[in-house]
Computed example of a mutant assay.
Amino acid sequence: MNWNVPNILTVLRLLAAPGVAIMFLFFARPWADWFALVLFVVAAVTDWIDGWWAREYNQESRFGAMLDPIADKAMVVIALLVITGFSGMNPWILLPATVILFREVFVSGLREFLGATAGLLKVTKLAKWKTTAQMTAIAVLFAAGVFEHAFLERTEGMDLPMVDSILTGAVPDEIGLTTMVQAEATTFLIGVILLWVAAALTAMTGWDYFSKAKPHLRDTKA
């Protein structure tokens, strides 16, 4: 294996995938949300950089072609597990996350079954769009977690009537609670919409790969 820049970035992105979950083991929220968000965004950016670098400087390799989609899937799957868990199994997140996870397992199984002919399941432009949509949605949902826990930190020690008084305008909002609530609601809504878009694109690419693989799944007649 050639340790060129694209391959090094891909390996680092693969190592960053479990790092997103580890942030929540060693840091309290919202710091864990911040660290996970930054780590995920940086890793997602390297996905574009290593592809561009490999094409620009003719450093494409079989190792990179094999590991790159694995790193992408690991990032998305682990981040979705974290977000789904901390969302309290919110169905608006759980359902699209289930579609995405099912597709990734299904296509991986197809590739394993096809063996030497798995090359027909090449990454399409639509598949690249779905990866972009997945990573964007996840980053936005991590940002929503940052705002949510910033709100909780600012209301620490307050009782519910006091919080309600500030949010309704009866008491001056000197600590920005209203801003935090609006920011959290907006980013969460955008993140959920993007996640559903990503789930739709994911399902479409899964069906496309299945259609291409169907001729190779038929039993041959004796």
Rank of each mutant, 00 (worst) to 15 (best):
I8Q: 11
L9F: 14
T10L: 15
L14W: 10
A16T: 12
A16M: 13
G19Q: 09
A21L: 15
A21M: 15
F24G: 08
L25C: 15
F26G: 14
R29M: 15
P30G: 13
F35W: 14
F40P: 04
F40N: 02
V41R: 15
V41W: 08
A43D: 11
T46C: 09
I49F: 03
N58Q: 10
N58C: 09
S61E: 10
F63Q: 13
G64H: 04
G64Q: 07
M66W: 08
P69W: 00
A74Y: 02
I78M: 06
A79V: 02
G85E: 01
P91K: 00
P91E: 04
I93L: 10
L94R: 01
L95T: 12
P96Q: 03
T98N: 10
F102H: 10
F106V: 03
G109M: 09
G109I: 01
G109Y: 02
R111M: 02
R111D: 02
R111K: 05
E112F: 14
L120G: 02
K125V: 09
K125W: 04
K125Q: 11
K128Q: 12
W129P: 10
T136K: 07
A137M: 13
I138T: 08
A139D: 08
F142H: 00
F142Q: 00
F142K: 01
A143W: 04
G145C: 12
E148I: 08
H149Y: 12
F151S: 10
E153S: 05
E153L: 11
T155A: 15
G157H: 14
L160V: 12
P161N: 11
P161M: 09
P161A: 05
M162C: 04
M162V: 08
M162R: 09
V163N: 06
D164G: 02
S165K: 11
T168E: 13
T168C: 05
A170Q: 13
P172E: 08
D173K: 08
D173P: 08
D173G: 03
I175E: 00
L177V: 07
T178S: 04
T179I: 00
M180S: 03
V181I: 11
E184W: 02
A185H: 05
T186Y: 04
F188S: 09
I190D: 00
V192A: 02
I193S: 05
I193L: 11
L195D: 05
W196Y: 06
V197N: 12
A199P: 01
L201Q: 11
L201N: 05
A203V: 13
Y209N: 00
F210I: 01
S211F: 06
A213Q: 11
K214Y: 06
K214W: 03
P215H: 07
R218S: 09
T220I: 14
K221I: 13
A222E: 13
